[in-house]
Amino acid sequence: MAWFELQEKKTKIPGAKALWTVCGRCRKYVPNAEWKKNSSVCPECGYHGRISARERIALLADEGTFEELFADVGYSDHLNFHDASGAYVDKVEAARKKTGEGESVITGKAAMEGIGVVLGAMDFAFMGGSLGTGTGEKITRAAELALAERRPFILACASGGARMQEGIRSLMQMVKTSAAIGRLKEAGIPYVSILTDPTTGGVSASYAMLGDINIAEPKVLIGFAGRRVIENTIHQKLPDDFQTAEYLLEHGFVDRIVPRNEMKSFIVKMLNYFGF
């Protein structure tokens, strides 16, 4: 990064936050209203900023059709987990307060251009979108509902991976969700996975990579192991585009890269091809 960009990053304009959003990539100041209108995509450089699960659902569901389900399913502190900075319960309660959500995913029924679907979206702002027992349970219930009602299941992923504060049972969510999605596929019901920034670790190594169609937003980070872990293991610098959506497309692991404002129409088109 050039020195003047660093300078710009550090510059504080009093009250700026209230009026402007600073692009996470090109650092341009974009008026909040314009940023919002453009679905948090930078009009200058096309960077797809992180958005909340509710914003994601608003972009995908027909207006007023989202009916939230399984909202009562929450986390479980079966390990009574404490680390250096305190209790897991306190952290997860803080995440609830901050996001207004009960878990790192929200799930429900919705219509997309009139097609009845089961829709889920993960929220990275909720403990890094980590996969806890509540997250896994909601996604599994959503998949089972899609199976019971023969509705396509659309899930937008955003996660750093498993939630280590829930120990081994967070790992087990990878099996539970993948098994439920397997049943959906056996029954001929489409499952579409949307990979957003970031999708890594245990989430990429389970339901995120299992879509009949895997769609990624441009430039997002998708991978299993962290860049630094890999660099320390192989003692090599990795290319800049390593683990980007474009890199995964090139290596054959995503079907398409689709910009945010075209996501809904692309999914609807695919569902039409699948007979919905």
């Binding site: 990878m174 099996v175 993948s178 098994a179 999605i181 397997g182 049943r183 596929k185 056996e186 990429s204 190594a205 389970s206 339901y207 995120a208 990579m209 299992l210 998708i222 991978g223 299993f224 192991a225 962290g226 872990v229 890999i230 293991t233 192989i234 090599q236 990795l238 390593f242 683990q243 290596h251 054959g252 692991f253």
Partner: peptide, 26 residues
Amino acid sequence: GAYPGREAEERGQAEAIAKSLEFSAA
């Protein structure tokens, strides 16, 4: 753990594990 390497990522470490879970569950 699964090998954290450049080629492992290029050949889809995440997909291979995900598919294994789905596959062995059934």
